[in-house]
Simulated assay, not measured.
Amino acid sequence: MAKILVIGAHGNVGIPIVEKLGQDGDQVLAGVRSEKQFGEYVEFENVQPIEFDLDGTIEDMAKLYQDNQVEQIIFSAGSGGATGDDQTMIIDLDGAIKSMLAAKQAGVKRYLMVSAMGADDRSFWADSGLHAYYIAKHYADVHLRNSGLDYTIVRPSALTFDDQSNQVQVVEKREAGMHIARLDVAQFVVDAIHNDQTIHQILEITAK
């Protein structure tokens, strides 16, 4: 089992990723913005919360990776819909890229990005209501593909709070009306980080 840092561990996808990894026996660092969020993980197996600042420097991130012997990274952070386009660029684009550059600096090879279905479809961005979000996801994914890291990019369709269906499909392209439960995304991510066959793959997933 691996030592895995989950960046964005307090998100609606991040929390179940952390819980499922710990249940599988991985040693999990739950990267969160503040110590105030540490209590979320008290009942979780094999999980240690840790402060992780996406506004920080590449050097500070790399030191955290090295000091904590991080072997794999899952990026599931997002600025949230209410924070504005500037925070989307700071977190979803620049923060993501800094975390990749830090991985290179620290010698961490395995990196999984939770992105978004449609991140390569410019025709969809303007009418999505999340134009800046898709721009950020697109260019973060581009950087990751060219980073030299052992990457996996997981692109879920529209997220819901439905129960886990265990009916995830990998699809060729986005279609209107596709959606997937956050719990299904979390399970897919956990399975993917454990499967070397997903390295250098972009996986667009949906459940319905």
Score class of each variant (00 low, 15 high):
His200Gln: 10
Ala126Asp: 04
Ile7Met: 14
Glu35Thr: 12
Gly84His: 01
Ala140Leu: 06
Ile153Arg: 11
Leu21Lys: 07
Phe44Cys: 05
Ile50Arg: 11
Ser123Met: 10
Ala9Trp: 13
Asn166Gln: 04
Val171Ala: 12
Val168Ala: 08
Ala176Lys: 12
Ser34Tyr: 14
Val190Ser: 07
Tyr41Gln: 05
Met89Arg: 01
Asn166Lys: 10
Asn195Cys: 15
Val28Ser: 14
Ala158Arg: 00
Asn195Gln: 02
Asp60Ala: 13
Pro49Asp: 02
Gln37Ala: 09
Asp24Asn: 09
Gly84Thr: 01
Lys3Cys: 11
Asp120Ile: 01
Ile58Gly: 00
Ala119Val: 01
Asp55Tyr: 14
Leu144His: 11
Phe38Asn: 12
Gly8Ala: 09
Arg145Val: 03
Glu19Cys: 11
Val13Asp: 03
Val171Asn: 12
Lys104Val: 03
Ala106Lys: 06
Gly11Val: 04
Ala30Ile: 05
Glu43Ile: 05
Ala96Trp: 06
Asn166His: 07
Val142Trp: 08
His143Pro: 00
Ala176Pro: 07
Tyr111Arg: 13
Asp26Thr: 05
Gln69Trp: 04
Arg174Phe: 14
Val13Glu: 08
Ala140Ser: 14
Lys98Met: 08
Asn146Gly: 15
Leu130Arg: 08
Gln69Leu: 14
Glu45Arg: 08
Asp120Met: 12
Leu64Phe: 05
Phe52Leu: 06
Val190Gly: 03
Ser128Gln: 05
Asp60Gly: 10
Ala77Lys: 03
Leu112Ser: 07
Leu21Asn: 08
Gln197Gly: 13
Ser99Met: 10
Asn146Pro: 07
Phe161Trp: 06
Glu43Gln: 06
Ala158Pro: 03
Gly31Leu: 09
Gln27Ala: 14
Val108Ser: 09
Gly22Gln: 09
Val47Gly: 01
Gln197Asp: 15
Ile17Phe: 01
Gln69Met: 14
Val142Met: 14
Ile15Phe: 10
Asp141Trp: 04
Thr198Ser: 11
Thr152Glu: 06
Gly84Tyr: 02
Glu45Met: 06
Ala30Thr: 03
Phe38Lys: 12
Gln167Ala: 09
Val42Phe: 03
